[in-house]
């Protein structure tokens, strides 16, 4: 990996933009919910935008808002919660890095990495073959812009809305999380089992007064997630899908060559 000049291939960049725009629109409701939640929690408009610009993660920001509302005061706890929540980026980044072509030098990797998310990862991985910088940078720009616009709109909306609607909006992020969890849990037994285990542990931890008194909400989430994922990893080891799909790609390439 050596340093390469930043050059953009216009066609590839446009192709990236085109594929990124739907994801940008898709982020509007998520980030609006995030904006509503943050401003409802008493975070100032500017601070809420600052969070979005710097963090760019709806689930992470929601967790941070929950911690703040729960009275968490330790900066370390905020960082640790985000750390546990985002371990998965290790996986995403590792598997997408396998597909980079030679245009991805150090600067290119940093620029792309800063704006990469689960969704852009998902779209990029649908491409057959190698990924180049022009395409990838085009792909990640619209979702970031969509996210920032949505967050700001959510904050503004929170000020205008009557109390009855604002109360109902309290559920919006949680409903979204349910929407993320349910489809994979329906399709995969291990994920369903993991979800049920997490649910059970979370309720149990909530019910034990000793834990409630001594651990903040952040610790309970971390504890629950680590215990559950350990149980999941022991009971349902995951097959290495990447290796399989890589082999498939190779097969396809070989066929094309023929």
């Amino acid at each position: 990996m050596e340093n390469k000049k930043l050059k953009l291939d216009r066609g590839e960049y446009r192709r990236g933009l085109k594929e990124g725009i739907p994801a940008g629109f898709g982020y509007l409701p998520v980030s609006m919910a995030c904006g509503v939640a943050s401003c409802k929690a008493g975070i100032a408009f500017g601070m809420s935008q600052f969070m979005s610009i710097m963090m760019y993660t709806a689930s992470g920001q929601a967790a941070a808002i929950n911690l703040l509302v729960g009275g968490e005061t330790a900066v370390f706890m905020f960082a640790l919660t985000l750390f546990v929540m985002n371990c998965r980026y290790l996986l995403l980044s590792l598997s997408i890095a396998q597909r980079f072509d030679s245009s991805m030098g150090t600067i290119q990797r940093i620029l792309f990495g800063l704006f990469n998310t689960d969704e852009t990862f998902g779209i990029a991985m649908k491409n057959k073959g190698k990924l180049n910088f022009s395409y990838l940078i085009g792909l990640v720009i619209p979702p970031y812009i969509g996210f920032l616009i949505g967050n700001a709109a959510g904050c503004l909306l929170n000020d205008i809305l009557p109390k009855s609607i604002s109360s109902a909006l309290g559920i919006v992020l949680f409903a979204m999380f349910i929407g993320i969890i349910v489809p994979p849990a329906r399709d995969s037994k291990p994920v369903l089992a993991v979800t049920i285990i997490a649910l059970t542990i979370s309720f149990i931890l909530e019910c034990i007064p000793f834990i409630k008194q001594h651990l903040t909400a952040g610790w309970i989430i971390i504890l629950c997630a680590v215990i559950t994922s350990l149980i999941g990893a022991i009971l349902f080891p995951v097959e290495d899908k990447d290796e399989k799909s890589n082999n498939d790609d190779k097969l396809i390439e070989e066929k094309e060559e023929k």
Partner: peptide
């Protein structure tokens, strides 16, 4: 790998329930 694969679901579930 398995541990990391299950983390997102575990985190989202414990964040959502019972809050």
């Amino acid at each position: 790998n398995s541990f990391l694969a299950y983390v997102p679901y575990a985190v989202l579930t414990s964040m959502t329930f019972p809050e």
